[in-house]
Design a protein around this nucleic acid. Structure first.
Lengths: 203, 203
DNA sequence: CCATAATATGAGTCATTACTCACTTTACAT
DNA sequence: ATGTAAAGTGAGTAATGACTCATATTATGG
């Protein structure tokens, strides 16, 4: 971590106008992802990203004003599908089905690229991301609370705490599973659902 | 992260012989802890640690051959009490009491210095620590499995998976609680125990 | 074609940081 | 007292890594 210069801008420097530029941005993001999952935060630096992308360091800084902006863009790319899945659960009616859907979405997300997800989770905690409401965790908590409001949901003392705990259980379990290389998402989702329902329904 | 030199030695360079030296080592470790919990991994560097400790950088390297060795020593200092507590549970007889004891130990550990524990957890995953068996997680899993073997324990399909999942649930919940500043360890321990027992006893 | 904007390049700059070493100071044993 | 080993010092070294900028190449509209 050399140079602690401006780190205020987190949004992209400029949008790519031509298809060529869009491709460059995509390649840069994928290179960043690969480095993070292979070398971890330790080996994650902009020079390495540019090299791995086969793009000059100057091009990287055409689109991202600084390293954190690149990280944020990657977080957004990685969580896009998860957020779609989470929002889709809003359509579901019923407590159990809702919970099953949310758990399945979280498991699928984390098992897609476990090491990457873990690094980005850590970075998200450090970055001054835009409004808390936009953060992935907060949006999942919102979906959880909607499930808790279903007619067939168990009675809960404090929905906020229940949502936070549920999210923590899911994150903890899928994170650990990803780390030890577990790949069977069906079995994992079943166990996570068991833990979550056990927590929520136990008197 | 400048210089990627020798990082093989993880044990202290030499033991302090005089009381003065032992004090210096202790001060260095505490300075490292404070920096980690205030500035995170980002601001954690040996020069800063030495300065905060009011000790010269040279002295730091008298006792720690490299930065990782310092981190490892800090991990050992921080987890010492936890491991004592975990081993003490071995005396307990009975499944429920054993689980209660383990959960209480984990909660107490993480709430002691939440931000620090989180950083060290992350670092432990990266460091080539001595034998897996020595790692904190592995030792807790061992204690869990001993609980699972109690006569009054629920029947479990796969103890290894159950232990790993249980540890993940505990870690996830206490980690999240620490992050959002929850301080009531009794309430937290109760909820964690509920989650764990819910997971283990649900058919 | 040509003008202009968009995109791409990469050597170079400068701050940061892990770590060394020649040296001084302090404590202890005899 | 004094020799010796332990402890402490901090300026300095070299590597690293974020980021700039002058310049070159490519695309697009007229």
């Amino acid at each position: 971590m050399a140079t602690k210069r401006e780190r205020s801008r987190l949004s992209p420097r400029k949008a790519p106008r031509q298809e060529r530029a869009a491709a460059t941005v995509a390649i840069l993001l994928e290179a960043a992802a690969r480095i993070l999952e292979r070398k971890g935060l330790e080996g994650y630096n902009t020079n390495a990203v540019a090299t791995k992308a086969g793009v000059s360091i100057g091009s990287l800084y055409q689109y991202f004003p600084n390293k954190d902006a690149l990280t944020v863009a990657l977080i957004e790319r990685e969580t896009a599908q998860l957020l779609l899945d989470v929002d889709a659960v809003a359509e579901t009616t019923g407590f159990i089905d809702g919970m099953r859907g949310l758990v399945a979405a979280a498991v699928a997300h984390q098992l897609r690229r476990p090491a990457l997800a873990r690094c980005l989770d850590f970075e998200e905690g450090r970055l001054p991301m835009r409004a808390r409401d936009m953060r992935v965790g907060a949006r999942i908590e919102g979906a959880l609370k909607r499930c808790f409001a279903c007619a067939d949901a168990p009675v809960l003392e404090d929905m906020d705490i229940a949502a936070a705990d549920t999210l923590a259980i899911v994150r903890g379990m899928v994170d650990a599973a990803g780390e030890r290389g577990e790949a069977d998402s069906v079995a994992l989702a079943a166990r996570v659902l068991r833990a979550v329902l056990g927590y929520l329904t136990r008197s």
